[in-house]
Design a protein around this nucleic acid. Sequence first.
DNA 1: TACTCATATTGCACATAATGCAACACTAAA
DNA 2: TTTAGTGTTGCATTATGTGCAATATGAGTA
Lengths: 292, 292
Amino acid sequence: MMDHELKLFLSVAEHLHFGKASQACHLSASALTRSIQRLEGELGHKLFIRDNRTVQITEAGLLFKKYALKAVQEWQAVREGLEDRDLIYGELSIYSSLTAVYSVLPELISLFSRDFPEVKVGLRTGAEEEAIEKVLEGEIDIAVAALPDKKVKGIEFLPLLVTDLVFVGAKSPTLPSPASSLEMPLVLPEKGVSRVRVDKWIKQQGEVTKQIMEVSGNEAILAMVSLGCGVGVIPELVLEKSPFSNEVEIIDTGADLEPYTVGLCSTKKNLEKASVGAFWETAKQGVLKGAV
Amino acid sequence: MMDHELKLFLSVAEHLHFGKASQACHLSASALTRSIQRLEGELGHKLFIRDNRTVQITEAGLLFKKYALKAVQEWQAVREGLEDRDLIYGELSIYSSLTAVYSVLPELISLFSRDFPEVKVGLRTGAEEEAIEKVLEGEIDIAVAALPDKKVKGIEFLPLLVTDLVFVGAKSPTLPSPASSLEMPLVLPEKGVSRVRVDKWIKQQGEVTKQIMEVSGNEAILAMVSLGCGVGVIPELVLEKSPFSNEVEIIDTGADLEPYTVGLCSTKKNLEKASVGAFWETAKQGVLKGAV
DNA sequence: TACTCATATTGCACATAATGCAACACTAAA
DNA sequence: TTTAGTGTTGCATTATGTGCAATATGAGTA
C-alpha cells in the first residue's frame, strides 16, 4: 500500500486508543506507536497527546485528519477508477489441489475471467497440504486450501465452503459393519488439516493404534481405498466430484471430525496486486451470491 | 517521504525516459524500473509502454498522472500548512566544530529559534573531521562541516561560506622569511578536508618531507602554533574568530591551497524530519539574505 | 549480415526500514 | 501497596528498497 501510514493514523484518530487501533489494523501496538512517531517527526507536530491513560487528538492532528481522509479516499478512487476504466492488466498464479480443481475453482476462474479477461491466469496443482507454503514462499499469488486450525501468520483466508470429513471404504456387495471397517488400515495424507483432525480423533479414541498408510493427495487416498487397501478420510466434497465416487462409499463410524473449510489463501502483500485483489473480491461476491 | 513512488512516476511521465528520470531522482535506473513495476502491479495497469527505444505513457498512465500531481501537491500543502499553522514541534541535534560555533552557528541558531521556538535544539561540539561520520551514524541530525572534496554518498550539503586555508606561524618581533618558516614542523589535523588539501600540496611540492605534528581540532593547531611549535594550516575564518588571533600571524608561502567551503551536512532521511528541514531552509534563506 | 550503441530489465547481494515480542514505565483504581 | 491497563522502548528478525553488473532487445551502421 501507499497509504499505509495514513490508514494507521486514521485508525488511531478514530479509536483514540493505540491498543484497539493496532488490533484493527492487524499489527502490533509497538509498530503502530512508531508509525505515529515517524509521522509526527515528519510533520513536526504532535498529532496525539498520550497520557498513558487517554489519547487526545491535537489541533494539528485534526487538521491532518482532514487531509488523511481525503488522501485515502482519493487514492482508492483512482484505484477503482482505473479498475473500472478498462481492463485490469496483470498476472495471477493460482495454486490448487486437484480436489479444488474439481470443485470450486472452475466457477471462480470463469467468473473472474469474465470480468477481467486481460489477466493471464496461471494454475498449478499439487498437494493441498503444500498450498500455504507455496503462498508464503511467494511462488504463488493465491491458493485454494483448507483453513488451518490455528491462524498462520501472514496468511489471509477467505472461506468459500465447508465440507465434512468422512470415512470411506471400498464399496462391497455385503456391507461390512462399521466395526470391521475400522479394523482395516487407515489411509491418510502425510500432513495437512485433515491429518491433524484425524490424529486428534485417534488420540481421543484412546490407544487403539491402527495401522496407518500415508499417501499424498486425496485422490491417492481414494485410489488406495478403492483398491481395498483400507479406510480413508477425505472431505465429502472430494468424494462427490471424484471419478472414484462409484467405487467407494461413506462409512458411518460415528466419529465426530470437525468439518473442513476450504477457501482462498494469500498474503497481505499479494492482495495489494490489483489482479490478486480483484480475484479475491470476485470470489467474495461469488460466495455472497451463492454462485460458488 | 510518503509520496516517493508518486514522485518517481511523475518524473518518468515527464521525461518519458527511464535513464533521465532516474538521474533526476538520484537513484539507479533499476530501482526506478522496479518502482514503476510495483505501481503497475498495484494498479493493475501498465502505465508506460516501453519499447526498448521509446517510452510512451498509456491512457491509464495519463489518468494516474492527474491523480499523482494532485496528491503530491496536497501532501506538500498539508506539510506546509501545518508548518505555518503553529509551532513546529520536535528536536534537533546539531554537531559543530568549535570553529563553527564561533562563526556561523550563532546567527543560524538565533534565526531558527526565532521562527521555531518550540524546537529543542541540542548542540554538540567536536572535531570538524568527525562531523560527517556523526551524521551518517544517525547520532546527529545536522552538522556544520567542510565540503568534502568528493561527494559523500548519502550526504546532502548546503554551502554557507567559503574561506581560504592559510598558513600561520607564531607572531615574532622580526618577521621570519617565508623560507625559514617552512623549515619548521607542520602542525596539521589528523584527518579532514584541510589535511587532504595540505597533503595534496605537499605532494605537488615534491619530496620536501617535512616534520608533521598531528593534532585534532583547529583550536589545538592554533594553540600549538602560538607556542612556537611550528607552522599550522587553518581556515582563515578560524583565525579571525579565534582568541589566539593576536598571537599568530598569516605566513604568505605562496602555496596555492584550494579554499574551503563550510556548510550544513545532513542526510536525505534526516531532512524529512520537519525540524531538520526547517533548519535547513532557514539557513538557506539566511545565506540568500546575506545574514550569515 | 555482423557489429555497436542505446536502453530497459533482471539476478544477486547488501543496506535500510518496518515489525513483533518481551520488558519496561507510568498512572489510576482497589 | 498491589493490580490492571496502556503506551513506549530494546532487541532480534524480517521485509523492502537499492545499486552494480550482467542480460536482453532492437535500431542504426559499416
